[in-house]
Simulated scan of single mutants.
Amino acid sequence: MDTITHTLFGVGIYQSVNKEKMNKKQKYALLITSIGASQIPDIDVISQLWDTTGQYQMWHRGITHSIFLAPLWALFFYIINRLVFKTKGIQSYFIALLAVFIHNTSDVFNAWGTGYLEPFSSVRLTFGTVPIVDLVIWFIFLLTFIGSKLYPKVKTHVLFRIGWVLIVLHIAIQSIQGSILYKNYKTDYQDLALSASFVPWHFTVIGKNDNTIDIINDSLLTKADFVERITSSNEADLNLLFAENPAAATLYKWSPFVVVVDDNNRIGIYDPRFYRNGDSFLGEYWDK
């Protein structure tokens, strides 16, 4: 998910806690823990500063997003609460653990995927059933916030807990529909991937057979819209590309499958899950 959504998750966790018996310092510590732990897995972006071998694609959403690292992140915020805010009890640990769990797990549902099982598996888990920027989630949080202002007699933490139920329901409905579409196309292609649209319940289906990749917009409620058939230059020798642009080798390993481009001007690869208007924003090339 994007940074705004992860921040909203943190605020949502904070607002979902009953703070009637908390003092100002405890509330501030809870806010820092909720938002900080909701963002901490993305600390891997700083790896760009020392990446000289094109490995960033594997490092981002890699080990820092592992479910096995979540307890360590939670422990980190627990220690901060004890040393900095002088808070007692173990609540901060479980709040941080929940926040990291939500961050890592929500990222699995969009097309980018995560190293959810690292270091025991390098496979990038990705369902592609929820967009990276999910406006429905934003809208639910907005309605919950407005509701807390319009109905002050209803406890804020109760309203936000209802909001969380709606978010989980939304993700479940999206994912069930995506799963059905995936099964419908599975027999037609050797390789298949989904990428959720910004429009709820709509998906882009990316199917590959040998050197052809089909891009199809579809949903369970509308007729399939065949967008384009792309031809991949699978016979091209990618060794020179990988030598000249190491990030291309990383992308080749990271993506479920790629489109190979080889013409008079350049050779390269791109991930067709992010194909829009004749190009993909996730590609690596080398000019001949």
Rank of each mutant, 00 (worst) to 15 (best):
161 R>T: 09
156 T>K: 10
117 L>F: 15
146 I>C: 07
148 S>H: 07
151 Y>T: 06
153 K>C: 03
153 K>S: 10
158 V>Q: 12
129 T>M: 14
159 L>H: 12
137 I>A: 00
124 R>A: 09
115 G>L: 13
160 F>H: 05
112 W>G: 00
132 I>W: 02
130 V>Y: 13
119 P>E: 15
123 V>I: 15
112 W>V: 01
145 F>Q: 06
121 S>M: 08
120 F>D: 10
128 G>A: 13
147 G>K: 08
141 F>C: 08
129 T>Q: 14
136 V>S: 11
126 T>P: 01
127 F>R: 01
131 P>L: 10
109 F>P: 04
114 T>N: 07
125 L>T: 00
112 W>I: 03
111 A>Q: 02
133 V>E: 02
150 L>F: 08
151 Y>V: 07
124 R>K: 15
128 G>L: 12
137 I>H: 00
132 I>K: 00
122 S>V: 06
119 P>Q: 14
161 R>S: 10
124 R>P: 14
148 S>D: 09
153 K>R: 12
129 T>Y: 14
117 L>T: 06
154 V>R: 05
143 L>F: 11
142 L>Q: 08
124 R>I: 09
133 V>I: 15
155 K>V: 04
125 L>H: 01
108 V>W: 02
144 T>I: 08
125 L>S: 00
160 F>Y: 14
161 R>K: 12
118 E>V: 04
131 P>F: 11
147 G>L: 07
129 T>A: 11
109 F>W: 11
130 V>P: 12
151 Y>W: 12
127 F>V: 05
144 T>R: 07
145 F>D: 03
150 L>D: 04
112 W>Q: 06
116 Y>C: 03
115 G>P: 11
125 L>C: 00
114 T>K: 04
131 P>S: 11
128 G>W: 14
136 V>E: 03
158 V>P: 01
159 L>V: 05
157 H>Q: 08
143 L>M: 13
138 W>K: 00
121 S>K: 05
113 G>Y: 11
146 I>N: 02
137 I>P: 00
150 L>R: 10
137 I>T: 05
144 T>F: 09
123 V>Y: 15
160 F>P: 05
111 A>D: 01
130 V>L: 14
120 F>V: 10
147 G>T: 06
161 R>C: 12
113 G>I: 07
149 K>T: 07
136 V>K: 06
